[in-house]
């Protein structure tokens, strides 16, 4: 990939990039399939159930069957819905979730675009998903989906502020927004140690951005039926679910890169193990944490949710920026 990037742009290199991107898409779809399977399995074990075990050996084909079923379902569009926006919403939700993966360095050799503003690119694109949610809620012309969509939007924009602020500390330490530079700067110590406050804020805000427990109010099935995607069926609905899990893939990769040292081994003496293995291990740890939290935590109330973002996370994130700035100047001998 690195040698390809150095070459003059031509149709040949473009073709290779397309092949690489399609391969990554295949990997991501495979991840989504088995993330859903393991989510159900792990939560099943935690609740002393067996989980899916009927379709295929050990239930391994359960998600495949679910997707096939969604593909075969009729595509119902309510008569009073806004046709254009109703069609646009799943695309708006899914496209940015996949496009953010363009800047992720998965290991020293497996990486795609090497943007100088990689982190900013991620943050900017992931914000578009909110538009997909609010469009879906509005276009359906359904009271449940309108309430669900607006609640989701309010939640996602409120938590986006502490999310983007908590990574300023890392940019301060590294002096770069390039994700590869950020990983390389963690050679001695992973950012989770000097940036622990930032990590705590980030992981909580990420949970809310992903609409996952304990912040899964947008889906609140007991009160809003299904939130913003009540009126969606068949494969349009599948696109929202897919976007959610692809976004989880992106967030897991980002947390691994920003805080857990990316592809770097846990100790320099272990660097005979390939970097991608370390990446997958750390990434899987984060994904497992998601399932664990979902099996453990109850859902927050909507007022607690909003005040937590603005009254706790935001001041803590601001404090973290100032603290990191002072420490960095002290280390550089500015005082």
């Amino acid at each position: 990939m690195n040698t390809l990037l150095q070459q003059a742009p031509s149709w040949g290199t473009t073709l290779w990039f397309i092949i690489a991107a399609v391969l990554l898409l295949a990997v991501v779809l495979g991840f989504v399939t088995y993330a859903i399977y393991f989510e159900r399995k792990v939560i099943g074990w935690m609740q002393l159930r067996i989980g899916p075990n009927r379709v295929g050996p050990l239930g391994l084909l359960q998600t495949v069957a679910d997707v096939a079923k969604l593909l075969l379902k009729e595509d119902v569009r309510p008569q009073h819905a806004d046709k254009a926006l109703f069609t646009l919403a799943p695309i708006l939700a899914y496209a940015p979730a996949f496009a953010v993966l363009a800047v992720m360095p998965f290991s020293e050799s497996i990486q795609f675009a090497d943007l100088g503003i990689g982190l900013l690119y991620y943050i900017a694109l992931s914000g578009i998903t909110v538009l997909g949610v609010i469009t879906a809620g509005w276009a359906s012309n359904n009271k449940y989906s309108l309430i669900g969509g607006l609640r989701s939007a309010a939640q996602m924009i409120s938590y986006e502020v502490p999310l983007v602020m908590s990574v300023v500390g890392i940019v301060l330490l590294t002096g770069s927004m390039n994700l590869e530079d950020i990983v390389k700067a963690q050679q001695d110590v992973w950012n989770i140690v000097p940036q622990f406050i930032g990590f705590a804020v980030f992981i909580i805000a990420a949970q809310a951005e992903l609409n996952r427990t304990p912040f899964d109010l947008p889906e609140a099935e007991s009160e809003l039926v299904g939130g913003y995607h009540v009126e969606y069926s068949g494969f349009r609905f599948a696109m929202f679910m897919l976007a959610e899990y692809v976004y989880m893939f992106g967030m897991g990769a980002l947390i691994t890169i920003l805080f857990l040292g990316g592809w770097l081994p846990i100790h320099p003496s272990l660097d005979f193990i390939p970097g991608i293995v370390w990446f997958i291990l750390k990434f899987s740890l984060y994904v497992f944490l998601q399932f664990w939290i979902r099996a453990t935590m109850p859902r927050l109330r909507v007022d607690q949710l909003m005040s937590f973002a603005w009254k706790v996370l935001l001041p803590v994130a601001l404090f973290n920026i100032l603290l990191t700035a002072v420490v960095v100047s002290y280390q550089n001998g500015m005082f």
Binding site: L4, L5, Q7, P9, T13, T14, F17, I18, A21, V22, L25, I91, Y94, A95, P96, A97, F98, A99, L101, A102, V103, F112, A113, D114, L115, Y121
Partner: peptide
């Protein structure tokens, strides 16, 4: 090249 890749990812994201 970097922005070609970004464009490919965006197009692929819409295309699926």
């Amino acid at each position: 090249n970097n922005y070609v890749i970004v464009a490919i990812f965006l197009i692929l994201g819409v295309l699926l």
